[in-house]
């Protein structure tokens, strides 16, 4: 895919999307420092842990994670990551996670990152895309992905706890990546 890609958000704010590069470590640390702890809580890994960050950059280098950044000027304002299994029963399924700075939410940035991740998944021949989202916390994201034909594949009732210990439902959203159109 062609990078960098320019996109214009609401209120004419301009951003550039490009792949994560090995030298982006300081930018990423600054980015996650600005993500509220209550949001980071729902991530699968503690991104504030330097060892985790090391493994993440290694995974990007090895190709098991495709990661794209959205930058305004020199600041990372959003990140999208596509996780590839590469082996076994779920190697046809990609998982993704999008994180956006609070002040850049509701500006369509997440949508632009999602569009790119779908493209990346199709380029890699994946058949399904999956996102695990927390009901009541990530309702905006659940609504947004539905516009791209994601559907509720499963719902795990009271499965996760928020940072205060309150139970929340985990919603598994899935999109099938069709290779061609149906005859209908």
């Amino acid at each position: 895919m062609r990078y960098p890609k320019e996109c214009v958000l609401k209120e004419c704010v301009e951003a550039v999307i490009r792949p994560l590069e090995p030298g982006d470590r300081p930018l990423m640390e600054a980015f996650y420092n600005r993500i509220p702890e209550s949001d980071r809580w729902f991530m699968n890994y503690d991104v504030m842990d330097p060892a985790i960050m090391d493994r993440w950059f290694d995974a990007v280098e090895k190709g098991s994670v495709c990661s794209i950044l959205a930058l305004c000027e020199e600041t990372v304002v959003g990140q999208g990551s596509l996780y590839l299994r590469g082996f076994g029963a779920t190697s046809h399924v990609g998982r993704f996670r999008i994180v956006v700075l609070p002040e850049f939410r509701q500006m369509r940035l997440g949508t632009w990152l999602l569009l790119d991740l779908i493209q990346l998944a199709m380029d890699r021949g994946l058949e399904m895309l999956r996102a695990d989202l927390v009901a009541g916390v990530e309702d905006g994201a659940i609504e947004a992905v539905q516009k791209f034909d994601f559907f509720k594949f499963a719902e795990l009732k009271n499965y996760v706890k928020d940072i205060h210990g309150n139970r929340q439902d985990l919603v598994i959203m899935v999109k099938r990546l069709h290779k061609e159109w149906s005859d209908f």
């Binding site: 062609r2 890609k5 369509r108 632009w112 569009l115 199709m122 380029d123 290779k179």
Partner: peptide
């Protein structure tokens, strides 16, 4: 071709003539 292969074929067809892929809403 798959849709993605066809898309990439179109990009290859138009790139040499100065066309670039752009985002739009």
């Amino acid at each position: 071709m798959t849709a993605q292969q066809y898309r990439n074929m179109l990009i290859r067809l138009f790139n040499p003539h100065g066309f670039i892929e752009l985002q739009t809403n």
